[in-house]
Design a protein around this nucleic acid. Structure first.
Length: 590
RNA sequence: GGAGCCGUAGUUCAGUUUGGUUAGAACGCCUGACUGUCACUCAGGAGGUCGCGAGUUCGAGUCUCGUCGGUUCCGCCA
């Protein structure tokens, strides 16, 4: 098809182009018909330029008149200075006076108007994603994503990494997340799984001596979704041989540094701070603390100070092995209404109520629980928090883990209520020394927290053989997360490369030799042929991009996202298949 | 699997509290007028399975139950 091809994009013409004859190709974003003159905003990926059509040119005028929104046109003419410029537009000082308009394609009336401040719901935007993507905002998210691919590739190439593609069709392992399964036609009744991560492959690449592996890869997990969780997502997956945790930290923060520097123009301070899991839990009530929150708002354990008080709620909790702890909110006038809503909130978390102490300007304190607390205890509490007039303490008591995590939630809630986030910068940190195991109360067994190949810290190796539950739970691992703004950016670990340790770990999680062999036999066998010490990491790529784009919703950074029920609104997957296809696969729907 | 919120014109919403005439608004769409707009303006018009299904009622967008979809959170996500 012949048409006048563009000489320029819709985002680049300026006063210096005045007088030139140009051609633009793009979509009709807006049309303002004033009778004798028609203004068209022509849009492409690069911007918007105003096309002006004068009634003196009858042919051009008539085609301009017939244009609808989202028609694809080619407009040619002379660039001229506008009589009144539009400071809101990058190209607002010029316009193209059209002497030719070719309609390259028409458009049906769109289900929603393509405009930057889009009004349509997410569902509709995802169904007609190709219209949504015409918006600069979403397109620039994809451009950001593309730019970061490049930064990542360049960084790891510079550091001698080998990018290896690992299989998408792999062996299903029942550990971890639920697998997406793919039936085998040739081997009826057998299935591949889509990778939850290339974990086993990258470890085997270390056995192979590849030494430094990286891959930007798709991963698949058949679990329930969230705003920051899609059934398929992208990781920056890496693994290194002959390394310690510190080596992995340096390599991983290096790529984050480059990304922030090149994509955002922000220089991060390295090395990133490191916080142990225990400190994170005890101070922030979460393993992914958001350090952007201004003010103190840290958790303080006051169990020691209130021990022996007459307040039954505290003593009951402490006597049954629990704790009392709280957080301090400063410089906020905490009203009755606020306390009521916070109380309602902690009740949803399973607490009977929320304790609070308000410190007044006249150096008195108000709280319904003061009458149960001696002056000495009151002073101790005040001291624990270093409380001043204007501060309010919120206190919970009960089982330790529950109190801490609930105070962690409360901390976020308060920060949100009172706008305490410092949005001016991103706050990174490493969280390390995670517990190797946790205890599954339902199944009455230990489970590996990260995965079964995570190396216990050296000083805990002897605990692996203990029969005591607390000894097992106390084991800390060379396992770490990178956290940014309260969101887990990625996680990794140093892996077990010695069969004797591996065997003990399998023992703890109740995996017999036989079962281990069946599930991970190929990996364990590989390890018998000289596995080097190795460790690695995997970044959640979508979350990195979301943070760079200033959103928490990773759907905004994915070209064709799925809904929370794992449906793709645009192509309508998943969908039924032909009986014939099922038959070939030897499958029957029940 | 559990809980909350939402579902009304092509779109975004109001109307649901307290059931009652012909279900409204804005944007978009169609027709017409208009030579400097950029949220153009002005005049006129079309457009509805109130998500779906039962039930209560003389009468349901409105109340009840169920169901489907979207979304947020918990569980889940080594």
């Amino acid at each position: 098809m012949q048409f006048t091809q563009r000489t320029n994009t819709c985002g680049e013409l300026s006063l210096s182009d005045v007088g030139k004859t140009v051609a633009l190709n793009g979509w009709v974003a807006d049309k303002r018909d004033l009778g004798g003159v028609i203004f068209i905003n022509l849009r492409d990926r690069y911007g918007v330029t105003q096309i002006t059509v004068n009634s003196e040119n009858k042919g051009v005028y008539d085609s301009a008149k017939s244009l609808g929104l989202e028609y694809v046109i080619s407009a040619s003419g002379k660039v001229q200075r506008r009589t009144s410029s539009n400071p809101k537009m990058k190209t607002g000082e010029i316009e193209v006076l059209a002497d030719k308009i070719e309609i390259l394609n028409t458009s049906e009336v769109t289900p929603f108007v393509v405009e930057e401040e889009v009004k349509a719901s997410e569902e509709l935007r995802f169904k007609y994603r190709y219209l949504d993507l015409r918006r600069r905002k979403i397109a620039s998210n994809l451009e950001m994503r593309s730019r970061v691919y490049g930064i990542v590739h360049r960084y790891f190439e510079r550091h001698g990494f080998v990018e290896v593609e690992t299989p998408i069709l792999m062996k299903s392992t029942p550990e971890g997340a639920r697998d997406y399964l793919v039936p085998s036609r040739i081997h009826k009744g057998e299935f591949y799984a889509l990778p939850q991560s290339p974990q086993t492959y990258k470890q085997i690449l270390m056995v192979a001596g590849l030494d430094r592996y990286v891959q930007i890869c798709k991963c698949f997990r058949d679990e329930d979704l969230r705003a920051d969780r899609q059934p398929e997502f992208t990781q920056i997956d890496l693994e290194m041989s002959f390394v310690t945790e510190a080596d992995v930290f340096r390599m991983c923060e290096g790529v984050i540094y480059d990304i922030w520097k090149e994509a955002k123009g922000v220089g991060l301070k390295l090395p990133l701070p490191v916080m142990s899991y225990d400190e994170a839990m005890e101070t922030y009530g979460t393993d992914k603390p958001d350090l952007r929150i201004k003010g103190w708002l840290k958790i303080v354990n006051i169990t020691g100070s209130v021990k022996g008080s007459e307040f039954k709620v505290f003593t009951d909790a402490i006597n049954s092995g629990g704790i009392a702890a709280g957080i301090k909110l400063s410089s906020v006038d905490v009203t009755r209404k606020i306390i009521d809503s916070l109380t309602e909130y902690v009740k949803q978390l399973g607490f009977g109520g929320l304790g609070y102490i308000k410190y007044n300007a006249d150096d008195t304190a108000s709280s319904p629980m003061l009458k149960f607390l001696s002056e000495e205890i009151q002073n101790k509490i005040k001291n624990d928090f270093n409380s001043q007039a204007g501060d309010t303490l919120f206190i919970l008591s009960g089982e330790k883990a529950k109190v801490l995590s609930s105070l962690g939630s409360l901390r976020l809630k308060l920060a949100e209520m009172f706008n305490l986030f410092d949005e001016s910068k991103d706050e990174f940190l490493w969280v390390n020394d995670f517990p190797l195991f946790s205890y599954n109360e339902e199944e009455k067994c230990f489970v590996a927290n990260h995965h079964a190949f995570t190396m216990p810290k050296e000083q805990y190796l002897k605990n692996l053989e203990s029969k005591n539950k607390d000894d097992i739970l106390s084991i800390r691992a060379d396992c770490y997360d990178m956290v940014c703004n309260g969101s887990e950016f990625g996680s990794g670990s140093i892996r077990i490369h010695r069969p004797d340790i591996q065997k003990k770990v399998f023992n703890v999680i109740g995996l017999t030799d036989e079962e281990a062999k069946q599930k991970f036999g190929f990996l364990l066998e590989a390890f018998t042929y000289g596995a080097p010490p190795h460790g690695g990491f995997a970044f959640g790529f979508d979350r990195i991009i979301a943070t760079l784009c200033g959103t928490r919703d990773i759907r905004e950074t994915i070209a064709f996202p799925k809904t929370t029920s794992a449906v793709s609104p645009m192509d309508g997957s998943p969908s039924p298949v032909d009986e014939k296809q099922l038959k070939e696969l030897g499958l029957k729907i029940t």
